[in-house]
């Protein structure tokens, strides 16, 4: 999968990415883009988990 793409590495720049999101604060869908969050001067914490409706 994705042989031509670079994976994130500790201490290196993370390649930009975008995710469709659900935002519970405004109860609406949206997008998260790493470069936009960086432009806002913010840190990003990503928290991956296997699946909704399971036991996080």
């Amino acid at each position: 999968m994705c042989d031509e793409m670079i994976q994130a590495q500790l201490g290196h720049m993370v390649p930009d990415f975008e995710l469709d999101t659900y935002d519970p604060k405004i109860r609406n869908f949206g997008k998260f883009k790493l470069s936009e969050n960086m432009a806002a001067g913010k840190w990003t914490i990503l928290f991956f988990y296997p699946a909704d409706f399971t036991f996080v």
Binding site: Q7, A8, S35, M38, T44, F48, P50
Partner: peptide
């Protein structure tokens, strides 16, 4: 996949936590 937590067998993401600085460094 980008963060190395994609499990191809299940199609699910492993429990990975990543902190990225405002300048984009992991």
């Amino acid at each position: 996949w980008l963060f190395g937590v994609y499990d191809e067998n299940s199609g699910l993401a492993l429990r990975g936590t990543f902190i990225i600085s405002p300048d984009g460094t992991l």
